[in-house]
């Protein structure tokens, strides 16, 4: 098996997991969500295998670098981080219906990587600027941050899906209580915020050792700071101003839009030093 087969299968399995989770939500069948979880974990294992194989293959090709060097590899890793974080959340909170709002994100990231014609899945050699030990630390922390925000976004959506007082027969009745969604969203934002902070810091330290400046207002840097500000606002509104529910969920959604722009928009629409992913 090579990495591209493993990752194609991963895409397929993640799609299947999403189908099970969404099916469980629509038909109110707990068993479908349980199956979805097993399928998701299977996909995650294969995703891990795919990343490791790709790493090995890059050594065999003589390039020898961690698979974090371009848009394709970053998307595959993004799926991986969202998947592992979600698996952890489901195990900790014993709440599986929320998978309907998380698993599609896992699937969409890797599907975009595999199916978009603009994204090259070839293993390419590392450009000189990326040859640094900071690469792994920077990429892992940033993407854990993105994963936290992605799940916070998924959970925020529940606020808008769930009616105020769903009756027992409605498909929304099994959704977790507002308190729990609030708690989950907050925990995910906190997780994302800590890792985004470390991600920006490792990036700054790296920039200082590669370009001689820890901060140069490059579009990627600026957008990551904008994202950081949005979530800092989220924290202050929640802790100091007592915001909850839908209002706060909007802030989390705006934050995720900023994340998406930092991730894709900057690369496709703006130019800068950070054009590799």
């Amino acid at each position: 098996m090579d990495s591209s087969l493993a990752l194609s299968l991963t895409t397929f399995i993640y799609a299947l997991a999403s189908v099970f989770y969404i099916g469980s939500f629509t038909f109110k069948k707990q068993i479908l969500a349980k199956t979805g979880f097993i399928v998701l974990v299977t996909g995650f294992v294969l995703n891990t295998v795919g990343i490791i194989l790709r790493w090995i293959e890059s050594y065999q090709m003589g390039y020898g670098h961690a698979p974090f060097a371009n848009m394709y590899e970053s998307l595959v890793f993004f799926s991986w981080t969202v998947a592992i974080l979600y698996i952890f959340v489901e195990l900790k909170y014993k709440e599986s219906i929320i998978g309907a709002f998380a698993s599609p994100l896992v699937f969409l990231a890797i599907a975009y990587a595999s199916l978009s014609p603009d994204i090259n899945s070839k293993i390419t050699p590392l450009i000189p600027a990326l040859k640094s030990n900071w690469l792994i630390a920077h990429v892992i922390t940033c993407f854990l941050g993105y994963a936290g925000f992605a799940l916070a976004f998924g959970f925020s959506i529940i606020y808008f899906v769930k009616p105020k007082n769903p009756d027992n027969t409605s498909i929304f009745s099994k959704l977790p209580s507002e308190d729990l969604i609030d708690e989950l969203t907050y925990q995910m934002v906190v997780f994302g915020f800590l890792f985004l902070t470390i991600g920006i810091i490792t990036g700054a330290v790296w920039a200082n050792s590669a370009w001689g400046k820890y901060w140069s207002w490059d579009p990627k840097e600026t957008w990551s700071l904008i994202t950081w500000f949005v979530y800092a606002i989220f924290m202050h509104l929640r802790m100091m101003k007592g915001w909850h529910g839908r209002n706060l969920a909007w802030v989390s959604i705006i934050g995720f839009i900023a994340v998406m722009f930092t991730y894709f928009g900057v690369n496709y629409l703006l130019s800068g030093l950070h054009s590799y992913g």
Binding site: W217, F229, L237, K241
Partner: peptide, 24 residues
């Protein structure tokens, strides 16, 4: 006031976009 902090953060975040769109 925390309100001032929130407004200032919003304005800084929003205006920071300008420099990423206009050539510097």
């Amino acid at each position: 006031s925390v309100r001032l902090a929130v407004y200032t953060l919003v304005i800084i975040a929003a205006t920071s976009i300008i420099g990423t769109v206009i050539l510097q």
